[in-house]
Every structure is written in structure tokens, then in C-alpha cells.
């Protein structure tokens, strides 16, 4: 803890300290990071923080306006929806769902993408051709359309939406991984490791993979934002989370009919989506800049 200052100019700061140094210079990125931390906090402790249950219906106070408007009450800070559910509580529980969707679909997509990318980069030949052409096909389909195709096969629902989103993101990770692997394979340390007798598996996961993590971290962070956005779009179309699940997109699905009468039903869920997506995008941009050696002058 209280180590004396490192002697001499040759002692480099630890990579994490260095990363934070560059990251914290970007105010937007720091704002993104804190918003993301807040979202995780809300998601983890939703049961304690949310003033009401996400699905309990207070029929007497249906479509109650937010607290600061005429007719609003302290009981429902952001008002209630058409069947009297507290919007604030639904948003807080929705944070849990959105982050869960992001976490599961990014992890699935990332791990499969790493394996396929490593295979394509290491084995080349027809394996690479087959994998990359498959990815081309998946990239040819617009993201939401591919997700809809997957949902058409699996049926609508929250879990299937996560699989669909994972499938949509897969080509990006595979392409990124393959490109990094091919770059790394031409470097001396890989040749040294190979001469030292490392097998292919060891080369893949122990030697090369750790050196490809920087772009993967950035892509995974940005993947969270597209996962949240796609899940909300699927929910909005009625193909993702089903009622009464407090998913942000599905909260908006019936909002069109309240556009004249109850602006809060329309406004807040979308704002929650926008803020979360923006936070992950800011954080991802900041990480990319901090990890990109070209920008450190």
C-alpha cells in the first residue's frame, strides 16, 4: 500500500493505472462509467430500492400523473400506467432485465465468437472459408431482421430474444477475433512460443488470446448497448419479453394509445433506454480511445 515511489524512469505504471489515466481524461466516458455503475446498483438491489412491486396493479390510481404534476401523488413518483402499475418501480426492475439480457447475450456471443475467430485465424484454409462465409451471410441480414428470423424459429419470449441478439452480434466478434489472431500470429513471441514446444491449444488460449483482449473489451462494451437496444425493439414489436414483464421496450408497446392522454407512459421508458444505451456507448468510446496506442502521444 505505502510503497515508496518507484525509483528511476524505467518503472512503468501498472496497465490498469495507465488505462484509468487515459480513460479519466475523457469526461463523457467517466459519466458513462458512473451511469453504468448506477444501473448495475439499481439492478442488483431493485427489490429494495423500488417503492412498489413491478407488477402490482393499483386500479384506483390508473394513469396517475407524475408527483410534480396536478393530480400526482408522492406515492407514485413517475406516475402509473394504464392498469395502475408504478412506472418508477417498473423502470428499476426493467434495468435488471436489460442488464441481464446484455450480460447473457454478450457473454454467449463473445465466447462463441472467440472460439470461432481463433479457429478461423489458426486453421485457415476451408475452415476459415466456411466460418467467414457463414458470418458474411449473417451480416447480410439487417440486425433486427435476423433477430426476427431467429424469434420466428424459436418463438417470442425473453430468453429467445437473448439468443437472437447473441446470434446477431456473433459475426462482429468472429471478424474482430480472426483479424487480431492473424496480426498476432506474425509476431515473434508466437514463433518463440511455438519453437519452445507449445501446442496449438496452448498457443490459442494462453499465448494469443490474452493479446487480443483490448478490442474485444471495447466491442463487448458497445455490444451491451446494441443488446439493450435490440431487446427493447423486439419487446416493442411484441416479439421479446411478454407482459407483464417490466421490460423497457415492451412497456412502450402499448404507449401509442396514451400519446394524447398520458405523456409519462410514453416518455420515461424510452428515456431509460436512451440513457443506458448512451452510457454504454460513451464508456465504450472512452475505452477504445484509452486502449488505442495510436492516440496516446
Amino acid at each position: 500500500m505505502n510503497r515508496p515511489a518507484a525509483p528511476g524512469p524505467q518503472a512503468a505504471p501498472s496497465p490498469l493505472v495507465e488505462l484509468w489515466h487515459y480513460f479519466s481524461r475523457n469526461r463523457g466516458a467517466v459519466f458513462g462509467l458512473f451511469t453504468v455503475l448506477l444501473l448495475f446498483f439499481l439492478a442488483l438491489f431493485a427489490d429494495w430500492i423500488a417503492p412498489h412491486s413491478a407488477i402490482e396493479q393499483y386500479r384506483q390510481s390508473a394513469l396517475a400523473p407524475p408527483a410534480w404534476q396536478d393530480g400526482g401523488s408522492r406515492q407514485f413518483l413517475l406516475g402509473t400506467d394504464a392498469v395502475g402499475r408504478d412506472i418508477l418501480s417498473r423502470l428499476i426492475h426493467g434495468a435488471r432485465l436489460s442488464l441481464f439480457i446484455g450480460l447473457v447475450s454478450v457473454s454467449l456471443s463473445l465466447s462463441l465468437g472467440i472460439v470461432l475467430g481463433l479457429l478461423a485465424g489458426f486453421l485457415r484454409g476451408w475452415v476459415e472459408f466456411a466460418i467467414m462465409r457463414l458470418m458474411d451471410i449473417m451480416l447480410a441480414l439487417p440486425s433486427l431482421l435476423l433477430a426476427i428470423a431467429v424469434v420466428a424459429i424459436l418463438g417470442p419470449g425473453l430468453i429467445n430474444a437473448m439468443y437472437a441478439i447473441a446470434v446477431v452480434m456473433l459475426p462482429h466478434y468472429v471478424r474482430l477475433m480472426r483479424a487480431s489472431v492473424i496480426t498476432e500470429l506474425s509476431k515473434d513471441y508466437v514463433a518463440a512460443s511455438r519453437i519452445a514446444g507449445a501446442g496449438t491449444l496452448r498457443l490459442m488460449f494462453d499465448t494469443v488470446l490474452p493479446n487480443c483482449t483490448a478490442p474485444l473489451i471495447v466491442q463487448a462494451t458497445l455490444g451491451f448497448s446494441s443488446a439493450i437496444l435490440d431487446a427493447a425493439a423486439l419487446g416493442f414489436l411484441g416479439l421479446g419479453a411478454q407482459p407483464p414483464t417490466p421490460e423497457w421496450g415492451s412497456m412502450l408497446a402499448s404507449a401509442l394509445e396514451f400519446i394524447m392522454s398520458a405523456w409519462w407512459v410514453v416518455t420515461f421508458p424510452g428515456l431509460a433506454i436512451l440513457i443506458s444505451v448512451l452510457a454504454f456507448n460513451l464508456m465504450g468510446d472512452g475505452l477504445r480511445d484509452a486502449l488505442d496506442p495510436k492516440l496516446k502521444s
Binding site: L252, G270, L274, V277
Partner: peptide, 22 residues
């Protein structure tokens, strides 16, 4: 432009309707 890039456009469309149409 970063906000526009992060925008859930189905919500954005609803806001536009709310403001300009309603």
C-alpha cells in the same frame, strides 16, 4: 450525434408524433 446514435428510434418516433402531431 452520439445521442442520435444511441436513440431507440421507436421511442423517438413516438416523441415526434407527440410533439408535432398531437
Amino acid at each position: 450525434s452520439l445521442t442520435g446514435y444511441s436513440m431507440p428510434i421507436f421511442w423517438w418516433a413516438l416523441l415526434l408524433i407527440q410533439l408535432f402531431s398531437v
